[in-house]
Each structure stands twice: as structure tokens, then as C-alpha cells.
């Protein structure tokens, strides 16, 4: 295991910057995600403008990987439609499960692409996907019934 491939500068940046760690003033939806085996406990807050994710933020506590992954996800999905966000979640989870390996596809994840290495660390996979599952739960119904 190469720690350099996990605790990268980008992850450290997201972990420490905290720019997405706050409460929204008027969230339309809150989704709590909890990983009972290690205690990560994050709440995702979302504000919608019609179909668009206008703003997003998170609170709670967790390890560097879960915090950074959440922050990267928020940067990625802000301003996107629910459908686009939903597709990105599926790409991310596909990447972590090693089901999606096509670089072109994975580049759509922007910063979060760097978390690909976590797919080699079974003990930390749950940390990386926690917030993404919360987002999926939050928008699943709208996206699936909208079709």
C-alpha cells in the first residue's frame, strides 16, 4: 500500500479547507449518512432550484477520506441537474467498485477521480462512498419518476 496514493495533496486540501462544511440557510433536503463500523456520520444538505442543485453543503464528522470525498462531490454537483448528478454518482460508485475503468468516463468526476486508488483499499471503500450514497438517496425518487 502506498500512502502517497491515498493521502494526496488534493485530499488534504479538501479535508482541511472546509469550504463545503457549513449549514445551508434554506435547505430543501437533508440526508444523514452513517457508517456504524467506524462512526463516520455526515449530513448532506441540498438546496434545489427546480431541477437544478443550487447549493450543497455538509456537516458532521468522519475521517479524511470521507470528508474529502464529500467535499469533492459537492464541488462537482453544484449547478448540475438532478439527472446529471445522479449519473455522476453512478460513475463514482462504479469506479470504487472497479466496474468502471474507462478514463474518459472517470474524468467526468473531476477532483473525485483521484479517489480511484481507494478501490484498492477495502477497509476504506465505505468512507469514500458514504456521501455519494446519501446524495443518491436524496434525488433517486425525482430522477427515477421523472423518466
Amino acid at each position: 500500500m502506498d500512502l502517497n496514493s491515498i493521502y494526496t495533496e488534493l485530499i488534504m486540501e479538501h479535508n482541511q479547507s472546509g469550504h463545503n462544511r457549513r449549514h445551508l440557510e434554506n435547505p430543501d433536503h437533508k440526508e444523514r449518512g452513517h457508517n456504524p463500523s467506524c462512526g463516520d456520520d455526515l449530513t448532506l444538505e441540498l438546496e434545489f432550484d427546480g431541477d437544478i442543485i443550487k447549493d450543497a453543503a455538509f456537516t458532521g464528522h468522519g475521517c479524511a477520506i470521507s470528508q474529502a470525498s464529500t467535499s469533492m462531490m459537492i464541488d462537482l454537483i453544484k449547478g448540475k441537474s438532478k439527472r446529471e448528478a445522479y449519473d455522476l454518482v453512478n460513475i463514482f460508485i462504479g469506479m470504487i467498485k472497479k466496474e468502471i475503468t474507462d478514463e474518459k468516463e472517470l474524468e467526468k468526476l473531476e477532483d473525485a477521480f483521484i479517489l480511484q486508488n481507494i478501490s484498492n483499499m477495502p477497509a476504506r471503500v465505505k468512507c469514500a462512498v458514504l456521501a455519494w450514497h446519501s446524495l443518491r438517496e436524496s434525488i433517486k425518487e425525482d430522477v427515477e419518476t421523472g423518466e
Binding site: M1, L3, Y7, C38, G62, C63, A64, I65, R124, C127
Partner: peptide
């Protein structure tokens, strides 16, 4: 400033097995 889970992952890279969590 470091979550216990990260501590355990980092110690593992030095060959040290400790438990993290509740």
C-alpha cells in the same frame, strides 16, 4: 486533528495493526 480511522490506515502502512472506531 486526525480521525482514528486515518491513524489506523497510516499505522498499517508501517506494519502496525491497531483498532480504530467505537
Amino acid at each position: 486533528d486526525v480521525h482514528s480511522h486515518d491513524v489506523a490506515t497510516i499505522l498499517d502502512s508501517y506494519g502496525v495493526a491497531v483498532r480504530a472506531g467505537h
